[in-house]
Nucleic acid binder design. Sequence first.
DNA 1: ACTTAAGCGAGACGGTACGTCCAGTCTTCGT
DNA 2: ACGAAGACTGGACGTACCGTCTCGCTTAAGT
Lengths: 204, 204, 204, 204
Amino acid sequence: MTTAAAADPDKRAPGRPRSARSEQAIVDAVLGMIADGDAIEKITIESIAARAGVGKATIYRRWPNRDELIIDSVASVKLPVPEVAGESLRADLITLVSQIGRPNEQARNGQVMNCLLPQIARNPELHTWYQKVIEPRRDVTRGVLRRGVERGELKQDLDVEVALLMLSAPMILQRTMHWNPAVDMSHLAEQVVDNFLGGALAAG
Amino acid sequence: MTTAAAADPDKRAPGRPRSARSEQAIVDAVLGMIADGDAIEKITIESIAARAGVGKATIYRRWPNRDELIIDSVASVKLPVPEVAGESLRADLITLVSQIGRPNEQARNGQVMNCLLPQIARNPELHTWYQKVIEPRRDVTRGVLRRGVERGELKQDLDVEVALLMLSAPMILQRTMHWNPAVDMSHLAEQVVDNFLGGALAAG
Amino acid sequence: MTTAAAADPDKRAPGRPRSARSEQAIVDAVLGMIADGDAIEKITIESIAARAGVGKATIYRRWPNRDELIIDSVASVKLPVPEVAGESLRADLITLVSQIGRPNEQARNGQVMNCLLPQIARNPELHTWYQKVIEPRRDVTRGVLRRGVERGELKQDLDVEVALLMLSAPMILQRTMHWNPAVDMSHLAEQVVDNFLGGALAAG
Amino acid sequence: MTTAAAADPDKRAPGRPRSARSEQAIVDAVLGMIADGDAIEKITIESIAARAGVGKATIYRRWPNRDELIIDSVASVKLPVPEVAGESLRADLITLVSQIGRPNEQARNGQVMNCLLPQIARNPELHTWYQKVIEPRRDVTRGVLRRGVERGELKQDLDVEVALLMLSAPMILQRTMHWNPAVDMSHLAEQVVDNFLGGALAAG
DNA sequence: ACTTAAGCGAGACGGTACGTCCAGTCTTCGT
DNA sequence: ACGAAGACTGGACGTACCGTCTCGCTTAAGT
């Protein structure tokens, strides 16, 4: 997202190199303000520059505008790709699903996804990029589902991609936006997985 | 959302009454810009006033700020509460689910939801209001599900609210944001309903 | 120099009229800073706006840039067209010449002409404008000289325009720039006039 | 004006000596931009560095700021001290006066003086320096005038310094700023000298 | 030949001011 | 009293330069 790396890795660019300290200070300032729960429109370039102790030009040298900076900052918070125990299909899915949309300790609250969602919706580049970020996580769930199909636990004709969507979308909307206020979120992951696996139809 | 109605319905306010033409022109301007696919942040009060041929104060007299205006405008596009034929549970659900997040002719593209999503996420008032708007639609689906439970077609212990979430969330995210690009959207409603009803587990 | 007057004097512009108070505050701020002896390049639009308690846009609505504003402010200091007693040619000329380039009480120091000189030199529009400003003053001297010629006191073939230049240029350069540091300025006006009248050649 | 020479002339500084090529390139860039008629405020350090193909630091190593650089560059254009034939007082004065403020071939137009005038007015150091530059030229005229006095051609009580001012100021203002647009400049030097010598009073 | 020391082009650094745009408010006139 | 028009203060925008500071690289002089 930042300036592309040099084509020739041997030849470094002329002139004074960019300061890693400044870069970090900027990203930290952004994450700090998000974590402080500041309204997203209050996170201005000027306030970021002031908080980071950095000139505005130093920001604009790296990011073309505020949105890219915020997105990049959030993206820099590396979320570890989750691992699964492999005990059972249900347990693995609950483990994975319960992590979707969960606020993590660095990007300390749900504001982060609130920032990202609209940008992703509008910015095709960002959308593509975001897909790349979550694809590894999606891949883990995909693997679990595929193994379920191979083992005969899941239906042979299961559309894995639709399944992924059905597992993640409820978690995302509910966690970031409290989409349906009548839903109790304490056991949502289990409920989603169980409904997904068992279906709604009455047995027999 | 607009200015509260007069306390005494008999006594009309003195002076020149507000022009319905202005109000309509403002709302039309907003909807027009949304339909034109303008980026949401380009829809400024000034541009709205210019397009509507109206003074800024005339807008502020009616709405407290830009977000409320946009939301109100979008909300004014009356979406008819869908009706169901009542033939079968599956057919009814597909009818309802396929309408979720569908762009309609007045708010002519998916931009509308893109505008609303972040606002809803951040603005508690708006969130409450939005619940009220979609609650009637939700209620229809809720009714269908409840009848399914009563008839014994659906599990007795089905959590209807979670079910609603599982039916709508995938449609919303996929339709407005192409959340999972690997998903084919041509039969998504059917797939979501069938997965929801039948579950993913292999029979037997 | 400010926005041109309306073509039709009857029809006033729509909308809120510009505030005379703001305009005065801006001009006062500029003159104040000049009088304070601030370096000319320290008189920035931002500092003017702050001192005048005015938004920057209010300044830019009236003047296209800093230079025009400063010039206009200085120009607004109405210098009274001098009058002459008419006693004698010599006395009248001394009266007039001694006023050229003299700092006056409102534009309280020589900085003013220092500001204007380079602008005049570079900006043709300003040059034209400045000519109009000083023309009335020049006209008074011109009248005195012409009467001198008519009365036969001055040479019949005197080039009045060259004469004006010879009377004013030494005063301007010496007063604003101390052009020749070896010149004693205390009786400069008298000396210039006497040299001009009597010439340098030895009598006889 | 450049960095002071070493205290001990024998001991040259260690390290790589400054490049004469760079120095020349910088000065040439400045003179070129002036000659191109660029507005003085467009001649920035950055543009100079770019045009000269030189780093900014290389400029700052030699001159403390833009003004000094511009002045130094202009000053480097050596104007030859004029010589006089000594035929007659009038002819000598016309020779000298006609050269005042005349654009020369290197500093190719009147812009140069336009650049210098305001700086001189504001910067006392520069003022002193400028006096030194023009003093030799002034001295020639001073010599001619003094000889005129000694020979009895000019009045015994002539104030030579005031005379210098009266001869040069009209030429400067008219040549660099077209001070009085009504003045025909084609014979200005002759007119000034003749007026100066003969005075304006009618004979007899 | 090798070290030392300053020069070099390049360009990033923290800043300041620019001139523009919009927010939300206020003030005018005409309806 | 509402209408439009548009001026008001305020503040962020993204750009341009300032004068300073690294970078890796020459270029000499003194070992």
